[in-house]
Design a protein around this nucleic acid. Structure first.
Lengths: 215, 215, 215, 215
DNA sequence: TATGAATGAGGCTTCATTCAT
DNA sequence: GATGAATGAAGCCTCATTCAT
């Protein structure tokens, strides 16, 4: 997912490249630190140490600590969107939704830092959290509208879609905290969580179709 | 909900009563402070100042700052459970669920501090958060099983119920953040949120019944 | 050594007796606490808890914390003097000195609290420490003078005696710290410590006599 | 003994020098403060104020308060060893021992802070105290063994040497407290203390020689 | 006399940010 | 641009002592 700057161990970089490279190092260090220890423990000292740069260097690239923290989630959030989109097929809308749901948990497995970066962002990086929520919400509502257009959903207004999307995001959040965290890192989500979600969605949100709920 | 000790401005209290009264003062002060500024800003100095007692007094009643913070949510959480129970009628199970959902938001209106105390607890008062989650989760699963027994729900296992409950709690959490917060305090949740929830639940979780979804 | 007030579990005590009893309880509690945890950890709260009385009670019997601490060492110090006197025979002066030296370490074994109470007193109970030092010093000089009178010591002035006594006390202090302390409490002092002391004293301080240093 | 950084009030220092200079300032401030008020009163605030640096600066140079305190005694202790060695001639072993004894008290006169730093270290800087004791003890035992090899001492085992060394250190400690402390600072030790020590040692520890005890 | 809650000064430590090199 | 020492505010907690009951 993230091949990192180390891959580009070029000897000669011009000023701009070196600059971007340093910033990128800090960024990745912050991702690691926050993912492993949480925002609260992500002091500038810790991040710069992990990045292998001086503390003062930090302030050549970011206005202050908060600015960096607020960029973390939106950036990885977009990675997630892309990841999920890639795993979503062209089947019936309801089945796609289940695929998205499952892909979310797969992404957590691939990028374990995401869990903490997402879940703690609300309180430690509210600006970034809002940005992320907007990103997701807008994209998700668009998906639902398209499904409605295709006849897979009926009887929901746009406003209701927005509410639904928040419910779905909330469900993911709580479920990930409940089932994915563990002392030894991130674990896969149990099957019955998926099945419960499928039942709730295919019956509650989508129209019945030949594909679903038949033995 | 909370008539507070101020109501009992009696001149004479014995030692035990005075003691309990002081603790209660601190407790209420903490509720106010956390509700308004969040756990992170709830320093002992701020809480005791709000309570009108010396900083040292705090430690006569609580082992340390964290102990108090961890008691906040479970205590108010039980108030909430009681509040919701009182607002839940004896109608069909699905309708009851909608009543509970609406009552949750009503409770937020009554006790505006609850929102932050709940939402931030996971990171700032994890012990209290877990206790609260257990309280709610157990009670909620019991409700769902009873509904299944009564025939209002079919085709969900106990494990799935637990997952469902986390989805419902997550939905409430995200919705409350999206729709109840506001610069000027806590506002009522829009009608379309309720309707979206009703549709999702009455179709997705409960069996169809004569009561639901009819004009 | 200390049969304690508990032995006098009489039901009826007059006011004066009750008073003295309470003070004694506090005193013994302090001895235990200081002996086990040191002066620094001997907070009024800890002492009164150990004594089973209220914190305020303390100040009915002692002006302040320091006053009690300063009484601890002189009191036990007198116990020690008495203990050592009882173990000192009537042999030649030099042999008596060795007996006193050995008895000192026996006393430490009998009253393990003494070690810390003595060694830490200099910094945490300077007044009591001085009083103790004076007690010991005066008594010890008197012993040496008597030995000189008896012809067992020659060639030392009174001033030199005082210096010698401080050397002896210092020797005991450092030796007890080096050889008696241990994780599991107080241990006996090794034989070579005694023999080294005997050689130094019988040759350095006392006149040769038929009794000493002969095979 | 300690010409201090003030002597080098150079305008230009590179980063490394400035860094070392700051640490040295803190160190010297601590020496002064502990020497004058004792470890217990040596708060970080007091030390940094004396050093003329901010409180936070302290933690750029020492892990915590205790680490500094534990370095104090060993450092000055080595100064003392060097000081004493320089004052010790090549005369007979017994005379050398008296020279060392006298030099100890001279050192106290030169570095008055040493007295408190040494005497209180056992309880307030136990790690440093142990290190110092080991330093001294090892060196001292080596001296005694050499004297034994040269025939100036007979009849003492290595174990007994260790005990003797602790006696000598204890004697110095108690004597310094008794005779060197005073309200107006540190005073010279009276002649009769030296003479008493000389008699005890030249007779008790060393073999008689033509040099000693002759008029 | 006994009690124990109330007090507040003071201690140690962390950390985001600045700034001279 | 990079560095890292310096800063000081702010936080949590302990504890001897007081005082009303």
């Amino acid at each position: 997912m993230n091949q990192g700057p180390a891959a580009a161990k070029v000897t000669k970089l011009n000023r701009i490249e070196r600059n971007a490279w340093t910033k990128q190092k800090i960024f990745e260090a912050a991702t690691k630190v926050v993912g492993k220890h949480g925002y609260a423990e992500a002091s500038v000292a810790r991040i710069t140490e992990q990045a292998g740069v001086g503390q003062g260097t930090f302030y050549n690239h970011f206005e202050n600590r908060q600015e960096l923290l607020d960029q973390l989630l939106p950036k990885i959030g977009l990675d997630m969107v892309e990841f999920i989109r890639a795993r979503t097929g062209t089947a019936h809308a309801a089945r796609q939704e289940i695929e998205r749901f499952a892909a979310f948990f797969e992404f957590i497995g691939e990028v374990p830092e995401f869990l903490r970066i997402l879940n703690e962002a609300e309180f430690f990086a509210p600006v970034g959290y809002q940005k992320h929520l907007d990103n997701i919400s807008v994209a998700y509502v668009r998906i639902l509208r398209r499904a409605r257009l295709a006849g897979a959903i009926e009887d929901f207004t746009d406003d209701e879609f927005e509410a639904i999307v928040h419910m779905l995001m909330g469900a993911r959040g709580y479920l990930s905290r409940r089932y994915s965290y563990s002392a030894a890192g991130v674990t896969a989500v149990p099957e019955h969580v998926i099945s419960a979600y499928r039942k709730l969605m295919t019956r509650g949100l989508f129209n019945p179709s030949g594909e679903q709920d038949t033995p």
